[in-house]
């Protein structure tokens, strides 16, 4: 059985453009292509061979291996074994989002790997940070809260 190469995490390409800033998080979820499920050819070639996590400790251990191998400098959060966040965010197998300062979604990235658009996501982050910078100035100048000003924009 062959499968479709998943050009994302195993090669690290999906992570290269991610800016190394505070407040950016990776949420490590269940394996997309475990050896006991839909294993991909590229993972077999590259030796990225993991079974689906059997418990939380195993999930964290694989996340740690991933982080070390791909030299990820971004904080990694570990999903619970109920996969609730995985389901809520339609994660499989990879997905990019941005939550704005008002707690609402400001970027809903396409489902990876087919509709995974790092450029779009990076542009959205830059826009978000520019908006936040201008809001901080606004807050100083008129004394209103950042959240209220953000919503009014």
């Amino acid at each position: 059985m062959t499968s479709i190469p998943c050009p994302g995490w195993a090669s690290g390409r999906g992570l290269q453009p991610v800016p190394k800033r505070d407040g950016v998080f990776i949420v490590y979820v269940q394996e997309a292509h475990p050896i006991d499920g839909w294993q991909s050819d590229c993972n077999a070639t590259e030796g990225v061979l993991f079974q689906q996590h059997q418990d939380y400790c195993e999930q964290e251990a694989v996340a740690n291996t991933c982080s070390l191998d791909l030299r990820i400098g971004i904080p990694v959060l570990i999903e619970e074994m109920d996969n609730a966040i995985y389901e809520a965010y339609g994660t499989a197998p990879e997905r990019l989002y941005i939550v704005s300062v008002d707690g609402k979604m400001t970027c809903h990235g396409g489902a990876g790997p087919h509709f995974f658009d790092v450029d779009e996501w990076e542009h959205a982050i830059e826009t978000c940070l520019k908006n936040q910078a201008s809001l901080s100035k606004l807050q100083i100048s008129n004394g209103r809260g950042v959240r209220a000003a953000w919503i009014k924009r």
Partner: peptide
């Protein structure tokens, strides 16, 4: 969710009113 390699937990809503939060979901 718990931060990998520590006992610290991060609640997404704690950033509300403070700063935007980019999120990357995935696995190895």
């Amino acid at each position: 969710l718990k931060m990998m390699g520590s006992q610290e937990r991060v609640r997404l809503s704690s950033f509300k009113g403070k700063r935007p939060v980019p999120l990357i979901f995935g696995s190895y």
